[in-house]
């Protein structure tokens, strides 16, 4: 379904650059008095895979949650897929339709089967008929390699399987952009790989991805840019090779030495 260009009238069409997926300019966010994001500037081209890393509490989650308005920013602009993110409910709804998100804790709906988890949004948001939604869901469940679990409940699956269902659930909405917030950090080591494999495959298919992760192997193989955040700021932005081999910033060096040492 593509009901795109008609409704995206917020930004004049000549201002829109179709190769840009996300544009964040001079964005600030506060939690109460706490200045959690400071002057964020970030442009994500279509098809880019960006890995965001940084110490705990540096604002990584908050940054990507601002992109689909799970958190509200207070200053600056965020433009997603040509739509300016404002208080306008219609804009927010449209952005959320185009942006998928995968959470650390999976957040599957425990009272619904795996298949129902995947078809819920396509049916109620995209208004697809049920059999078509089922077909799409099965296709993505096959892509994440668990079609045989379709009729089980999330509580009956392993963590790795649940996270793959969560990825499939997002993909069923046919998003243009995928956000991942530490998708593997709640998983046991032997399950991390199965989730990363799915994400690598997704990256190869050309999906625009923003991934908060500390999986440096994943960053090296998949990312075309790595962003390092600390204390609410983007400190360093570089290609993965440069980032790991020649970190420019002192804090980046310190961080890398910490996560690579264990």
């Amino acid at each position: 379904m593509n009901n795109g260009n008609m409704t995206k009238t917020v930004v004049p069409s000549d201002d829109r650059d179709h190769s840009v997926a996300i544009e964040i300019t001079n964005m600030h966010k506060w939690f109460g008095k706490f200045h959690v994001l400071k002057d964020i500037n970030l442009t994500v081209e279509r098809g880019e895979r960006i890995v965001i890393c940084g110490p705990s509490g540096s604002g990584k989650s908050t940054l990507i949650r601002c992109i689909n308005r799970l958190e509200e920013h207070q200053r600056g602009d965020i433009t997603v897929d040509g739509i300016l993110l404002t208080d306008n409910i219609k804009n927010i709804a449209e952005i959320r339709r185009e942006v998928g998100m995968v959470f650390q804790q999976f957040n599957l709906f425990p009272h619904l089967t795996v298949l129902e988890n995947c078809t819920l949004a396509p049916i109620w948001v995209r208004k697809l008929p049920k059999d078509e939604a089922d077909k799409i869901a099965m296709r993505y469940l096959e892509r994440v390699r668990i079609p045989e679990q379709a009729l089980k409940y999330p509580g009956q699956l392993s963590g790795g399987q649940q996270q793959r269902v969560a990825i499939a659930r997002s993909l069923c909405m046919n998003p243009k952009i995928m956000l991942f917030d530490e998708p593997t950090s709640a998983l046991d080591p032997e399950m991390i790989k199965e989730v990363l494999d799915v994400m690598i495959q997704l990256a190869k298919s050309g999906m625009t991805m923003l991934v908060v992760t500390h999986e440096m192997g994943f960053a090296k193989t998949v990312a075309n840019r790595v962003i390092f955040m600390d204390e609410g700021e983007i400190i360093e932005e570089n290609s993965p090779d440069e980032f790991f081999d020649n970190p420019r910033n002192k804090r980046t060096k310190l961080f890398l030495s910490q996560i690579l040492s264990h």
């Binding site: 709804a93 959320r96 998100m101 957040n107 819920l120 948001v125």
Partner: peptide
């Protein structure tokens, strides 16, 4: 997380 997942999927 349940609310957030629903929001992220675009549910009203």
């Amino acid at each position: 997380g349940q609310f957030e997942a629903a929001d992220a999927l675009g549910l009203k």
